[in-house]
């Protein structure tokens, strides 16, 4: 019990004092996972829309792949991304391993299937007659897609939240491709693991509280965005 209390006290100390190291780690976490989520939205939303609206052979297989990908283990992604990014790997010449970009790539791989699946479900839920109506009103395919995306925005924001939640909380891939390098690729989850290894449980608890606050903050913001129109309509 003492330990938990000490950890919470430490968390508030670090937060209130705006400890530069903790601040750096927190901002990096936000930047890396935010960018990865954005990338996964750019990949996942169009892909999910195509899968939801398209009718082509192999579609069911692709849908099952996307659904399966939601549970992609971060360590497996970390391992494979590492193999590609190592100096001896096919992308070794770009010197990406152990940089924030490496973590962004791995996290985008983790989040993209999540966003794809959520988008697919959100768009498929829309009444199919809406599409016909839009076409009848003379919408071109882009306009129709945009109207559908707007119609599905509740589900799409859920997709963004699930994607962000998935990557901000993972540690396996970040540790492997990032290397937990101080001032460069140390994010909240890898820093927490390291502090536990060092036996600094109070700092570890503090970091975990900060991670929870960060994850909640972002989710709350997105939720506000999601519910905003509903409250006024």
């Amino acid at each position: 019990m003492e330990l938990i209390w000490e950890g919470l006290v430490k968390a508030f100390q670090l937060l209130l004092a705006l400890d530069p190291e903790v601040l750096e780690v927190t901002l990096l976490t936000l930047r890396v996972s935010g960018t990865a989520t954005l990338v996964s939205v750019l990949i996942g939303v169009p892909l999910g829309a195509v899968l939801a609206l398209g009718r082509f052979p192999g579609r069911n297989f692709l849908v099952s792949l996307a659904n399966f990908g939601m549970g992609l283990p971060p360590v497996v992604v970390g391992l494979w991304v590492s193999i590609f990014l190592w100096r001896s790997g096919p992308l070794g010449a770009f010197n990406i391993i152990y940089t924030p970009l490496a973590i962004i790539i791995a996290q985008a791989v983790i989040a993209s299937p999540i966003v794809t699946s959520f988008t697919l479900a959100a768009i498929q839920q829309i009444n199919p007659r809406l599409r016909l109506q839009l076409l009848a009103l003379g919408a071109n395919p882009m306009q129709m897609l945009w109207s559908l995306v707007k119609e599905a925005r509740l589900g799409l924001l859920a997709a963004v939240m699930a994607g962000f939640g998935g990557v901000v909380s993972e540690v396996g891939a970040s540790m492997m491709v990032g290397g937990n390098i101080k001032g460069m690729t140390r994010v909240l989850t890898t820093a927490t693991v390291m502090e536990v290894n060092k036996g600094n449980f109070d700092v570890a608890i503090a970091l975990s509280v900060i991670l929870l606050l960060l994850a909640y903050g972002v989710t709350a913001l997105l939720t506000a965005l999601q519910q905003w129109r509903n409250n006024y309509e």
Binding site: R31, L38, L101
Partner: peptide, 15 residues
């Protein structure tokens, strides 16, 4: 798209 591109540029600059 703009936000995305900016954040990528931001990332690479910071790097």
């Amino acid at each position: 798209v703009l936000v995305f591109m900016l954040s990528i540029i931001g990332c690479s600059q910071q790097q």
